[in-house]
Design a protein around this nucleic acid. Structure first.
Length: 468
RNA sequence: GGCGUGGUAGCCAAGUGGUAAGGCAGAGGUCUGCAAAACCUCUAUUCACCGGUUCGAAUCCGGUCCACGCCUCCA
């Protein structure tokens, strides 16, 4: 079984070969911490989480770096509006980000470098580019990367600058750059920046956006590393510019595999504040959905396919998750049984794990991976129905489920999803009524429990209470 | 205008040359005090449309229609 990914660099599926066998250097573009991240952002981070978990599942050692952009136009403007120092302003959103990724069960990166803590490294790159004659300082005191001096520019996208729509956004008059396509490495300070600036050989200023990723990725992962991910919109100009800077400065290939995820749309339209379909994670949680349900929706569509987010999808998620929960509960109940025979279970679990790994190895085919999970559940349920209720079988099946969940991370409920004591009390009262064959009262109690959001199921082992 | 995606059942979504995975919803059945859960059966003669290549196409080629993204700092 070979591991394959779609590489934006070649626009085709490629076998994955890490630089050091068994190890992966992974860089993912992180948030700009000027606001709460929205579910579109999290779609991308969720894709990266599936990628990372798949690599771990397949036995790779992963070094994951995710940057935090804590200085740019938006963070500066935001801090000024809030009357806070830049760092105090961004600290709040950094914390919110970490809280949100925990809710979505995203594995934390190994390193979260912040742009403001790597100014020195960035200046070094600009110096090299300057020495090589690729960077120049314009009349506005800013330093730019000269695309004319770097013919390799345009590896990720075919940009025909003659064909770019002129006059819409590109107003040549406003530029002091040599060419409109040149991009800023170092932005000269101006009054709007207030007290946000660093000293550099080219005067006070701050780094251009692309520069931080070049500096921080190579610092922690090396001048050439395995994988770099982000949203599809980052292909141009962000990643294109990173490649240009890094390769021009380091004289070697920057990244071997570029993976980009498609956008999330809401009810078929791009999410935007003006359309009123803009959601942060908390907007969704406040409507009563769990982080696990949101995760389910975010990971359910292949990462290169645009994901149509809707509340209907969240409702469906709840139903699917209940099936998984019911299955897991059933297995757990069987753990207390005598050992029993588990011959067929080994066959089923090993096929499941094979199918699952093969699906994910094929450019993260998540739908096929879920199909493996559901086929596993169905086959196991069939066995359980036919009397295979030994603890050995349950143990094996639970182990298998746990392995699948190392990638999916949706098979266990969120804390707080447990049954409240007052509901348990009602369920016990109902069971007493059933024992005395007072079915009218038992049914009334079940309705009462249901009205509070819980369901009672009668099983051979007694009643079981689950979330509605 | 340039570049790039995508259109598969009521909904979500795999499948990229060999005769349509999986989930949700729906129908019938087994089980049950009744339910629920679980299991079984059924639910696309067909993959936007029109041509072409092929023994064979959802899959390849050409065209048409529709939707979406990027084109200077938006994941």
């Amino acid at each position: 079984m070979t591991l394959k990914f779609y590489n934006t660099l070649s626009r085709r599926l490629e076998e994955f070969r890490p630089i050091v066998p068994g190890k992966v250097g992974l860089y993912t573009c992180g948030p700009t911490v000027y606001n709460y991240a929205h579910i579109g952002n999290f779609r991308c981070y969720a894709f990266e989480d599936i990628l990372k978990r798949t690599l771990l599942f397949l036995g790779y050692e992963v070094k994951h770096v995710m940057n935090l952009t804590d200085v740019d136009d938006k963070t500066i403007r935001g801090s000024q509006e809030a009357g806070l120092k830049l760092n105090d302003f961004t600290a709040k959103f950094k914390q919110a980000f970490f809280a949100d990724i925990a809710v979505l069960r995203l594995l934390p990166a190994d390193i979260y470098p912040a742009a403001t803590e790597h100014i020195g490294e960035m200046i070094k790159i600009v110096k090299v580019l300057f020495d090589r004659g690729i960077a120049y300082q314009a009349e506005d005191r800013s330093v730019y990367f000269s695309i004319a001096k770097w013919p390799q520019y345009g590896q990720l996208v075919n940009i025909d600058r003659e064909q770019m729509r002129s006059g819409v956004r590109v107003k040549l008059d406003e530029y002091t750059k040599d060419s409109a396509a040149d991009f800023a490495l170092w932005k000269a300070w101006d009054e709007a920046d207030g007290e946000v600036y660093w000293d550099s050989p080219w005067g006070r200023g701050r780094p251009g956006w692309h520069l931080e990723c070049s500096a921080m990725s190579s610092k922690y992962l090396g001048a050439t590393f395995d994988m770099h991910c982000g949203g599809i919109d980052n292909i141009f100009p962000h990643h294109e510019d990173e490649i240009a800077q890094s390769e021009a400065a380091n004289g070697c290939k920057f990244v071997n595999y570029w993976l980009h995820c498609a956008h999330l749309v809401v009810d078929g339209q791009k999410m935007s504040k003006s359309l009123g379909n803009f959601y942060t994670l908390h907007d969704i949680l406040d409507k009563g959905y769990s982080g696990r349900e949101v995760r389910w929706v975010l990971i359910g569509t292949h990462y290169r396919q645009s994901l149509n987010f809707s509340f209907q999808a969240l409702e469906d998620a709840r139903a699917s998750l209940q099936r998984i929960d019911a299955f897991r509960t059933r297995l757990q109940e069987n753990l207390a049984n005598p050992a029993g025979d588990s011959g067929q279970v080994e066959e089923i679990t090993s096929k499941t794990l094979d199918d699952f790994a093969a699906a994910l190895s094929d450019d993260l085919n998540i739908s096929a991976a879920f199909a493996a999970l559901f086929e596993f559940i169905r086959e196991m349920n069939r066995l359980l129905d036919s009397g295979c209720t030994g603890s050995n079988a349950a143990r094996l099946a639970l182990d298998c489920l746990e392995k699948l969940d190392r990638v999916l991370a949706v098979c266990t409920p969120d804390p707080g999803e447990g049954v409240p004591p007052e509901i348990t009390a009602l369920a016990e009262e109902r069971q007493a009524a059933r024992k005395s064959k007072d079915y009218a009262r038992a049914d009334a109690l079940r309705k009462e429990i249901e009205s509070q959001g819980w369901l009672v199921e009668d099983t051979p082992k007694g009643p079981r209470v689950i979330r509605k």
